[in-house]
Design a protein around this nucleic acid. Structure first.
Lengths: 169, 169
DNA sequence: CGGCAGTATGTAACTCTTTATATACTTGCG
DNA sequence: CGCAAGTATATAAAGAGTTACATACTGCCG
């Protein structure tokens, strides 16, 4: 299971609570994984039962008691073994990409509108992107930039193709 | 559920069997979705029960009888509605990307080796990539090229940083 | 005080996906 | 003929992920 290993990897950067890990995951898309808290808490329990992490309860200044986890030696070893497994090109699994794949099924106007909206999402994401402090973050930024270029090219093509059909307005 | 809608979208290109749809999905990563046959067959049954597709059984020249599905009017409408839903930047969910995010945790040698292996995967994928006949395929090609550039840059950085530690042959 | 927002943890139910297995039809090879 | 490989459909079980909900502690605003 990848989630557990990603959590171990994040814990290798220092002790954290389930809440913290959830924030880190959703806050940094360059990490390549995302998960809801409802999935994180049981995963941490399993890691604890398996001896891969250790628990320390701490009072929180602004909420209920926190459960802070830190890596054990077994956890660090397990993480390293997972990290050494072979890489492969990921198979896509995203509704937005599937919708983009059917762009040609749409009318000229809605196609253009979708592309422009997607372009806005991309540039927002680029602005929000983390500093380029790691290879993964540099990768993500480069991909966002490339996708922006793609969107601009498609928008340009759609615009030059339409001239007649948008005469009304 | 996205899988059903992707299947409807593929069927909009012409009637197909579950086997065909599985081949199309796994054969074209630009489609943005992937699924096993074990998931596709029950999905087609549900679409049939829901009246979104119609079934025709046909003898196959090289195997057991095929069940060919084609879109109904309801299916086409359902697909269009799904297609009109708002786009959003996908949240990543890929073990390989998560491993790349922890590149900095690895030794100089294994980091370099991982990057070089990943680079090979990328260029293989680029060579295998479908012709640029749709926006989604052009997108995928541009992203693969950008990722190749990224990998080259990271490999270059890793190489210029090592000079001493690889002195032993 | 009451209520809201933010922090923090958790469970239950449901849906989606993967893995394993079974069946069956055809062609081609030994 | 027996068997492997490719085509084709299917189900069961297990695993992963999402959605909905419940609880509780703090500080702050009205």
């Amino acid at each position: 299971m990848s989630l557990s290993h990603v959590l171990l990897g994040l814990l290798a950067r220092g002790p954290a609570s389930g809440w913290d890990l959830g924030s880190r995951l959703s806050g940094d898309p360059a990490l390549g994984w995302n998960a809801e808290l409802a999935q994180i808490y049981p995963a941490l329990r399993r890691l604890l039962r398996g001896g891969f992490v250790a628990l320390r309860r701490r009072r929180s200044p602004n909420g209920p008691p926190r459960r802070e986890y830190r890596l054990t030696a077994a956890g660090r070893r397990e993480f390293r073994e997972w990290l050494a497994e072979p890489l492969e090109i990921p198979k896509p699994h995203a509704a937005a990409l599937a919708r983009l794949a059917f762009l040609e099924k749409r009318s000229h106007e809605t196609r253009l509108a979708s592309l422009q909206l997607y372009r806005v999402l991309l540039s927002d994401e680029l602005m929000r992107a983390s500093p380029e402090t790691t290879a993964a973050r540099r990768r993500r930024r480069m991909l966002l930039e490339a996708e922006l270029h793609w969107a601009d090219a498609e928008i340009g093509a759609a615009l030059s193709g339409r001239t007649l059909s948008t005469e009304r307005r």
